[in-house]
Amino acid sequence: MSRRLPPRSRARVGSPRWALSIGLALASIGFVGAAQWNSSTVRQTVISSAQGVLIIQAEQRQREQEQLRAQIEEAEDRVREFQAQSAGSQSATDRLNQDLAAARLAVGLSDVTGPGVVIEIADSTRQVPVGENPSNYFVLADDLRDIVAALWASGAEAIAITGGGGEGGAPAERIVTTTSIYGAGSAILVNQALLSPPFRIEAIGPGDLHERFLANPFYIGRLSLRIETFGLQFASEARDEVRLPAFIGNTRLRWGAPERSD
């Protein structure tokens, strides 16, 4: 014998409001699903072209780079351990270790912390007008260079750039004497590591670093104009505490050597 649904439930299931809600929900799923399918189809078309092989090679190089960085970091730690426990004259060892620590701190080879600023810059969300160059609406290498120049000129003592929003993404790239920032198409390489937007630039410096940065010609000039004209997303704020990692990479001279004083 079949059971009859309680009157209240029957009324709920059969109500127009219920049918409307389900209908809207299914229509939304259909629309969004179709849009997802379209965008993934377009991406699939691009990747399956001749660029596919090159993309795989580029990704392999990036993975290799990450592994090499991790191995270098480990080896640097081992060197520092040995230096801390060196045999021989203790006072000479202590003096040497102090000099090494001071040198590493001065040139970007130590993790550092202190007051500073955090700057974030991302591509514009504006619709690109017909006939305009879409690249204008992307963050370019010149934009990052202008930010870095403005920070150094404002008294920054340490700077690092992170891509992809910074949280849990690729490690930050510390700016050192050999740092290059340049664009390869729409991609930006910092220390020859590929970074993608949004970009986070953090700097440690004097208490008025943020104010000085905002008044610096490298910020006020080309960069501000691009932010305003093309709608690049930009935000900056002073922070009481910023923490930056040491530079991880090759610090060996390849074409030169330290000059020896005879």
Partner: peptide, 14 residues
């Protein structure tokens, strides 16, 4: 090496 890398020491080369 650290000093040469960071600019604290002079470097000679080609």
């Amino acid at each position: 090496r650290v000093e040469a890398f960071g600019g604290l020491g002079a470097v000679e080369g080609q």
